Simulated assay, not measured.
Amino acid sequence: MQPPVFDDSLRTGFAAIDEQHRLFLTMLAELGAHIEAGHHRQGVIDAFQGMRLYADGHFADEEVLMQQRGYPELEAHKGLHATFMAMAADLEARLGEGAGLLSVETLEFLGSWFIGHIRNEDQRFAAFARG
């Protein structure tokens, strides 16, 4: 798996949010490394759960910031976060069915979704907050 990289195109200008984005992408890459290395099922489950919980906390922080700034698209943004969390919960539930159900391709999809979300939705908020 080609690990997702946090670069300048993902910076929002909010240091705490940018650091959370960077850390989430690092966690995603580490989970991919666990899967590629064939680590035991529980190790993959633990890493995935940690990543999912981290994303949940990050989304909550982001939504508070958006609320504080009076972001008019907050509810729609929350819906996108809820969609990601539902996908992650579904994947986590399927992890219990078998070790091979979480593939590197699935992680690449999650990483692509997350990066696309930052580049489009989070950057839209950042522009609003700066404006």
Score class of each variant (00 low, 15 high):
residue 92 E to C: 11
residue 107 L to G: 01
residue 100 G to P: 12
residue 95 L to H: 04
residue 106 T to A: 08
residue 108 E to F: 05
residue 105 E to A: 00
residue 98 G to C: 04
residue 83 T to Q: 13
residue 111 G to V: 03
residue 95 L to A: 03
residue 103 S to A: 08
residue 109 F to P: 00
residue 93 A to Y: 05
residue 109 F to Y: 14
residue 114 F to H: 12
residue 97 E to S: 04
residue 102 L to R: 03
residue 95 L to V: 05
residue 90 D to K: 12
residue 100 G to Q: 14
residue 105 E to S: 02
residue 84 F to K: 13
residue 92 E to M: 08
residue 109 F to G: 01
residue 109 F to E: 03
residue 102 L to V: 09
residue 95 L to R: 02
residue 85 M to F: 05
residue 101 L to M: 07
residue 102 L to C: 10
residue 94 R to A: 07
residue 86 A to T: 08
residue 94 R to P: 01
residue 100 G to L: 09
residue 105 E to T: 03
residue 115 I to M: 07
residue 106 T to V: 07
residue 103 S to K: 03
residue 108 E to L: 10
residue 85 M to G: 04
residue 85 M to N: 08
residue 110 L to D: 03
residue 84 F to E: 09
residue 95 L to Y: 06
residue 106 T to S: 09
residue 95 L to F: 07
residue 114 F to L: 11
residue 101 L to Y: 07
residue 105 E to V: 00
residue 96 G to W: 11
residue 109 F to D: 05
residue 99 A to C: 15
residue 91 L to M: 14
residue 93 A to M: 06
residue 94 R to N: 11
residue 83 T to E: 12
residue 110 L to E: 04
residue 86 A to H: 11
residue 106 T to H: 07
residue 112 S to H: 15
residue 83 T to H: 10
residue 103 S to E: 07
residue 111 G to N: 08
residue 109 F to K: 00
residue 108 E to G: 12
residue 108 E to M: 11
residue 106 T to C: 08
residue 100 G to Y: 06
residue 92 E to K: 05
residue 104 V to D: 10
residue 90 D to V: 06
residue 111 G to K: 01
residue 108 E to A: 09
residue 89 A to F: 15
residue 89 A to V: 06
residue 108 E to K: 09
residue 107 L to Q: 00
residue 108 E to I: 04
residue 83 T to K: 15
residue 90 D to F: 08
residue 83 T to I: 14
residue 87 M to T: 14
residue 111 G to C: 06
residue 102 L to W: 00
residue 113 W to F: 10
residue 99 A to P: 05
residue 100 G to H: 08
residue 105 E to P: 00
residue 91 L to T: 10
residue 95 L to G: 04
residue 112 S to W: 15
residue 85 M to Y: 03
residue 87 M to I: 13
residue 93 A to V: 04
residue 90 D to P: 01
residue 94 R to M: 04
residue 94 R to Y: 07
residue 114 F to Y: 11
residue 93 A to T: 11
residue 94 R to G: 01
residue 83 T to R: 12
residue 93 A to L: 10
residue 113 W to C: 04
residue 98 G to K: 01
residue 92 E to R: 06
residue 110 L to I: 07
residue 90 D to C: 10
residue 101 L to D: 12
